[in-house]
C-alpha cells in the first residue's frame, strides 16, 4: 500500500456551512468532519444528514476526507458516513477491541450495499483514556482497517487521567509511548508528537505550529492535524523536507554506495557516520519528499479544476 501524505488536517463541525464550504480551499492533506464533540446534541441528526453531500466538497481540493463519529451512536453515524469517497472513519475514546469489530462490521455492511470496495474505508481508533491505553494492543489488532495507530496523549487523555494538559514536562511518556510501541509491534503506521513545552494551548498559532511540525519531522514524524485554518500551511511546510536536506540525503546515499564498494559496513562523511541505517534514513527522506511533491501537485490540480467549475454551496 502506498504511503499516505497527511501532513495537515483540519477538524471542523460538519454543521457549520461557513467552515465546510471553504474547507476545500485550505490546502489541507486531510479534512476531518466532526459529528462528535463540536456538534451540539440537538443537531446530531441534522449533522448526519450532511455527510453524504459534504464528502465531494472535501474532495474538491484533493484532500482525504474523514469523519469523526459519536461513541453513543455508531450505527446511525456509520450509516450516514460510509459513502463513496469517504476515506476514513474515526472512532473517538476507543476502549475495547469489541467496539472496533462492531465498527468494522457496520462499515463492511454499507460498503457492500453502496458499491464501495470492501476494506476501502479506514478506521482510526482514537485512544484517549487509560482504559483505551490498557487495551491498546487488542484494539489495534481488532481490524485490518486500522492502518495507523497511536494516541494516549492530548486533551481528552489529560481529562481522563485527571492531569493538567499544559505543563512543562511530558506527562504522557508512558501512555503515548505504549500506543506507539503497539503500532510498531504490529507494523502499523503511527504518528508522533514530540514534547514541547506549551503553556498557552493556542490552536491557531502559526509560528508555534511550524516549529512543532519541524521538530516532529526531525524526530521522524510525518503527519499532523489541526483545528484552525492558520495551522494548515505551517504544518504542510514544516513536515515537508527542505531542498537542502534532500540534497544532503543524496550525498549520504552516494557515500554509502562507496562504503559498500569498499566491502565495509561503516564509513564517514564530514564527521557523520555512514552506514545502512543512515542510508535507509536518507532513502526514506528522499521518498517522503517525492510523495509530498506529488500530493502538492495533486491538490493544486484538483483546486484548479474546482475553481473552473464554480462550486455551489450545498450545506446551508
Amino acid at each position: 500500500m502506498p504511503r499516505r501524505v497527511r501532513r495537515s488536517g483540519l477538524m471542523m463541525p460538519i454543521n457549520n456551512p461557513r467552515f465546510v464550504n471553504n474547507s476545500w480551499r485550505r490546502n489541507c492533506d486531510s479534512l476531518d468532519f466532526d459529528l462528535e464533540d463540536s456538534v451540539p446534541q440537538s443537531q446530531k441528526e441534522y449533522a448526519r444528514s450532511l455527510v453524504k453531500q459534504v464528502i465531494p466538497i472535501g474532495l474538491m481540493g484533493g484532500a482525504d476526507v474523514s469523519v469523526r463519529i459519536n461513541t453513543a451512536t455508531p450505527e446511525a453515524d456509520i450509516a450516514a458516513s460510509a459513502w463513496p469517497g469517504m476515506g476514513r472513519i474515526a472512532h473517538p475514546k476507543t476502549e475495547s477491541a469489541q467496539r472496533i469489530r462492531e465498527v468494522d462490521a457496520l462499515i463492511t455492511k454499507y460498503e457492500r450495499l453502496r458499491g464501495i470496495r470492501v476494506g476501502a474505508i479506514e478506521v482510526t481508533a482514537m485512544i484517549e483514556s487509560a482504559l483505551g491505553v490498557s487495551n491498546g494492543y487488542d484494539i489495534a489488532s481488532a481490524s485490518p482497517r486500522v492502518k495507523a495507530f497511536g494516541g494516549g496523549g492530548g486533551y481528552d487523555m489529560s481529562l481522563d487521567m485527571g492531569v493538567d494538559m499544559f505543563v512543562g514536562f511530558n506527562q504522557f511518556v508512558y501512555s503515548a509511548g505504549e500506543c506507539e510501541l503497539v503500532a510498531r509491534a504490529l507494523g502499523k503506521e503511527f504518528s508522533i508528537s514530540v514534547h514541547m513545552t506549551d503553556t498557552s494551548g493556542s490552536v491557531s498559532d502559526a509560528e508555534a505550529t511550524y516549529l512543532r511540525a519541524v521538530a516532529n519531522r526531525k524526530a521522524g514524524g510525518r503527519s499532523g492535524g489541526g483545528l484552525h485554518p492558520n495551522v494548515v500551511e505551517p504544518s504542510n511546510r514544516g513536515l515537508t523536507p527542505p531542498p537542502e536536506e534532500v540534497d544532503q540525503a543524496r550525498r549520504v546515499l552516494s557515500a554509502y554506495e562507496e562504503v559498500q564498494r569498499r566491502g565495509d559496513a561503516e564509513g564517514e562523511l564530514n564527521g557523520q557516520v555512514i552506514d545502512a541505517y543512515e542510508a535507509a534514513r536518507a532513502a526514506e527522506l528522499i521518498d517522503w519528499s517525492r510523495l509530498c511533491a506529488e500530493k502538492d501537485a495533486f491538490k493544486e490540480q484538483k483546486r484548479r479544476e474546482a475553481e473552473g467549475l464554480q462550486p455551489q454551496p450545498t450545506a446551508r
Binding site: 511518556v173 510498531r184 514534547h195 521538530a215 524526530a219 521522524g220 535507509a280 526514506e284
Partner: peptide, 26 residues
C-alpha cells in the same frame, strides 16, 4: 541494542531520543 537505529528514533527538542524514555524504563 541499536533500537534507536533499527526503529529510527531521533532526538526530540528537549534532548531525549523520541520514545526512548518509555522503552528504557519499560
Amino acid at each position: 541494542g541499536r533500537a534507536d537505529l533499527t526503529m529510527d528514533l531521533r532526538p526530540e527538542p528537549e534532548g531525549d531520543l523520541h520514545l526512548m524514555p518509555y522503552l528504557m524504563q519499560r
